[in-house]
Simulated scan of single mutants.
Amino acid sequence: MATVSIRDVAERAGVSVGTVSNVLNSPARVSPRSVERVHAAIEELGYVRNDAARQLRAGRSTTIGLVVLDVRNPFFTDVARGVEDEAAMHSLSVILGNSDESVEREAAYLDLFEEQRVHGVLISPYGDVGPRLARLRSRGTPAVLVDRMSPDGGFSSVSVDDVAGGRLAARHLLDIGRRRIAFVGGPLDIRQVADRLVGARAAVEAQPDARLEVVELSALSVLEGRRAGEALLARPAAERPDAVFAANDLVATGLLQALVMQGSVRVPDDIALIGFDDIDFASAAVVPLSSIRQPSQLIGRTAVQLLIEEARDPGLAPRQVVFQPELVVRASTAAGGSRNETATSAH
């Protein structure tokens, strides 16, 4: 079936193409009778306006492109919700892309957004996207990094202090008397994971009788966490850590599943466990998880605000917004398995 054009509508309504355009964009400039005839023709022919083409002619899209590392991770789902809510307040829509921690997929989404001439790009980068974002900006498309600071300050960014978060998690484990701590997460080339490890190392190195073991994973997933938990359980009891800092709550969930299903290890008595992100599931786990909280929706909303500011004034200097994480203590690290929830901020 052939696509109905604005010219077809004009012919059916017995008016000019310009009149149809005015009805669609500035109806106050057209007589009520002509408006009625045009709308009747639109309904009869099933005409759907090509909004993308209209935006391209105007030189400005009303769409934001958002690329996240893993859409299955509830943290990024919450970030996307914040982006969508803030965008809607400015009459903008959002296209969501999931890079799945793949440089190729990340590049493909940036290609798509460039072709669509989006209003701006929000991205939680996996690869080195700096040169590509610079090219987009040179063509009038601003970009803001999400959940990642700009390495050289060349782009605006909204993030959480992951080093402080890692330090906060490890310090909590040390404060409850744990000395054999394992950091479980990866790949370590993900900047957020690497920064959390840096913070954990700093806290452990400040405690002379403590040590930190690193267990690198291929993905930040429940399945990888479960595999890591099974590997820890396969060790003799004396060679296991007495605490685990998981790089995110999905990994912590998998670890918890492995430990609880096996039954011979008690959480937190034998192994204390803390995650990162404080996703909704953390508080509902069979042993409620302690975690490092990030303001996920606020991160998304703030990123949109920075993007809109730069779209309005391309000459603005890049801004780095860094939120401080909070420690949320639940049963997985609480003495005696207490279910009380407390939160403290990093300093």
Rank of each mutant, 00 (worst) to 15 (best):
T3S: 14
S5V: 01
S5F: 03
R7N: 12
V9N: 11
V9S: 08
A10S: 03
G14I: 05
S16R: 05
S16I: 06
S26Q: 15
A28P: 02
R29A: 12
R29E: 11
V35F: 08
E36Q: 14
V38I: 04
A41R: 12
E44N: 06
L45K: 11
R49E: 14
A58F: 08
G59H: 09
T63D: 11
L66S: 06
P74W: 13
P74M: 06
P74Y: 12
D78R: 15
V79G: 01
A80Q: 00
R81V: 13
E86R: 15
E86M: 15
E86H: 06
M89P: 05
M89E: 15
S91V: 08
L92N: 03
S99L: 05
E101P: 05
E101V: 00
E104V: 12
R105I: 10
R105V: 08
L112N: 10
E114I: 10
E115A: 15
Q116T: 09
R117Q: 15
G120M: 01
L122E: 05
L122N: 07
P125M: 02
P125T: 10
G127Y: 04
L136S: 11
R137C: 03
R139L: 09
R139M: 10
V144H: 04
L145K: 08
V146Y: 02
M149I: 13
P151D: 07
D152I: 11
G154E: 13
S159R: 07
D161G: 06
G165P: 02
G166M: 03
A170V: 01
L173N: 01
L173Y: 00
G177L: 09
R180A: 09
R180E: 13
V184N: 00
P187R: 04
A202C: 07
V204I: 14
Q207L: 11
Q207S: 15
L212Y: 00
E213W: 03
E213C: 06
E213K: 01
L217S: 04
S218E: 14
L220H: 01
V222N: 09
G229Y: 04
E230S: 11
P236R: 08
A237Y: 07
R240H: 01
P241L: 00
P241M: 00
A243S: 02
A243P: 01
V244S: 07
A247D: 02
N248W: 03
T253S: 13
L255N: 08
M261K: 14
S264Q: 10
R266L: 09
V267D: 07
V267W: 12
P268G: 01
L273S: 02
D280P: 06
S283F: 01
A284Q: 14
L289G: 03
S291V: 08
R293W: 13
Q294D: 02
Q297A: 14
I299H: 05
R301Y: 07
A303H: 07
I308F: 07
R312G: 14
D313Y: 02
D313S: 11
A317Y: 02
V321H: 15
F323L: 07
F323W: 10
F323G: 06
L327N: 12
A331V: 10
G336K: 04
S345W: 12
A346V: 00
